[in-house]
Design a protein around this nucleic acid. Structure first.
Lengths: 201, 201
DNA sequence: TTATAAATTTAATATTCATCTAATTAGATA
DNA sequence: TATCTAATTAGATGAATATTAAATTTATAA
């Protein structure tokens, strides 16, 4: 990552109103007016800050009728915090043993998949542990076409190939940024914004 | 941590010149004029930015004759990045199993100490792995009085109780922010700025 | 079509802040 | 003491930006 991006990221978080917006959004999606009330500012101010946060890819938006709901972009938030440190300490001690780590990550991944999927490829059950759940979600979602738009019905059918409870799972896809929803139309997010299981502690 | 601190931290990193200063300092300590040359700004500008970084506790300073050397404050840099995320996601998923974690951390700690110290309390050898090394350093340094000023000679004697190579170890103390040096006088840093082993990966 | 509700844009204001030059301070050395 | 060097302060300038009220856009509902 380059200097400008890191600066932009920190600029985005260098304002109390924006941080408070993010705190509210961490509790779930909110629309502009609600944010304006809770923060005691005008809607125009929210629009202004939302633009800044959007530029830094820290939030997502979804339109429903007249109102636009904002939500947190988990992946970028966590990812950028790390990227900033990497820029400052580039290679200071972070690169050692990196090739081994890749192997180990891949081993973990395939072991989880072997354990939670039947040999026919259906999901036995949804893992309770977040890390494992993300591996499972990523594995399923990687069978969708990127760039293509899906109707809600299509998504439900797709998920049912793997698991009965398509409603819950569909919500998980959105929540962990694997997909994006706009007016009932679903689309895959680019992989770099997916919640990454190997980032978690 | 409260809102203001998080905002202040991000404000401090929301400027390209300051990020570039930190990058330079990650390569070792530098004085004001050197920084000014490398960044193509006047010394006055460096003073200005150094003040901002100091307010956010991101750098340390040491005076030698006429010139002041700046260096990175590792601990605060990494710690604040995490604290910011914690503020936004407070309790969202971070608190679960926290009591178990404390126990586990303590177990790790005492196992490392048992392994690297003789029963007389001397250090067998310095661990190669950073995590373990920090546990060892913290254990030794915790036998110094906080708030008291030590001459270099005293520090050397103190370290020799544990290990022969006092020069190397003294440098490690400084490098990992356990101690602070000014004109040959040493003093313990407050524990919250010590490099924390359980923060690493 | 008209009315309504939410969001955005516009324009204005006030504040913050990065940077410079010039003057000053603090410490070291001769 | 006088002098040199590094750093800081003071003041000025220009750019960025947080906020608001008012006007405008966009999409829904009647």
């Amino acid at each position: 990552m380059q200097l400008d991006k890191v600066v932009a990221y920190h600029k985005a978080l260098a304002d109390p109103t924006r941080i408070r917006m993010l705190i509210l959004l961490a509790g779930g999606e909110r629309n502009g007016q609600t944010l304006a009330e809770k923060l005691s500012v005008t809607p125009a101010t929210i629009t202004h800050h939302a633009a800044k946060l959007r530029e830094a890819s820290l939030i997502n938006e979804r339109r429903d009728k007249n109102t636009i709901y904002f939500s947190l972009n988990d992946c970028f938030l966590k990812g950028n915090a790390e990227a900033a440190l990497r820029l400052i300490y580039r290679g200071a001690d972070g690169t050692e043993g990196e090739e081994n780590m890749e192997e180990e990550l891949e081993r973990t991944r395939s072991s989880v998949i072997r354990h939670f999927f039947t040999k026919e490829g259906r999901l036995k059950h949804v893992p309770a542990q977040l890390k494992k759940k993300l591996i499972v979600l990523e594995h399923i979602v990687s069978h969708l076409e990127s760039g293509r738009k899906y109707a809600e019905k299509e998504i439900n059918e797709f998920i049912k190939q793997y698991h009965e409870d398509f409603a819950t799972m569909r919500r998980e896809f959105i929540m962990h940024q694997f997909m994006y929803r706009e007016d009932g139309v679903y689309e895959l997010n680019p992989p770099e914004m997916w919640a990454k299981w190997h980032r978690l502690s």
